[in-house]
């Protein structure tokens, strides 16, 4: 236990004043202090990608960042994807293409795909597969995730 620090996080456009130990990860802070539990933890060592969120628009593993590093940045989580009850094209496409089974990896894949497609809207084929290979899914065999992201990419380009 070390001294607690007061910080403010900006998550999905909303400010959260939280008091955390410096060693507390961003993932734990988002889940426990901001009470946004849509970001999941599958390995806590930066491999599985279930905890992927966006920091200033880029996909990051939230289990590999400390919360105290993240003051003054814009954080996006799965809870911020839909707006006013309207699903994001990626959410629609995952639903339409059966891109999830147990759904545990889904928030991480959604945020990974959002970050990647916003950075490069034309991402397709092998390059897209390579990016999506950042995260693990144990249920789907991946092909429906790829189909969903490809379909969403088309809609997001419009």
């Amino acid at each position: 236990m070390t001294a607690l620090r007061d910080i403010t996080l900006l998550v999905n456009g909303q400010e959260y004043a939280v008091r955390v130990e410096p060693r507390k990860t961003l993932a734990d802070t988002i889940r426990e202090d901001c009470r946004l539990t849509g970001t999941h933890l599958g390995c806590e060592h930066g491999v599985c990608g279930a905890c992927t969120i966006l920091v200033d628009g880029s996909p990051v593993r939230s289990c590999l960042l400390f919360a105290v590093q993240c003051e003054g940045v814009e954080i996006e989580t799965v809870e911020g994807l839909a707006s006013d009850g309207v699903l994001h094209p990626l959410q629609e496409a995952f639903w339409e293409h059966h891109g999830l089974q147990c759904g545990f990896c889904t928030p991480g894949f959604l945020m990974l795909a959002k970050g990647a497609l916003e950075e490069d809207p034309g991402l397709t084929g092998e390059s897209l597969k390579e990016v999506l290979s950042s995260n693990l899914c144990r249920c789907t065999g991946y092909q429906n995730i790829l189909a969903a992201v490809e379909a969403a990419a088309v809609r997001m380009r419009r």
Binding site: G38, E79, F94, G103, T106
Partner: peptide, 8 residues
């Protein structure tokens, strides 16, 4: 099952 899972 999906709406709850894709929105967190």
């Amino acid at each position: 099952e999906d709406p709850a899972l894709i929105t967190g």
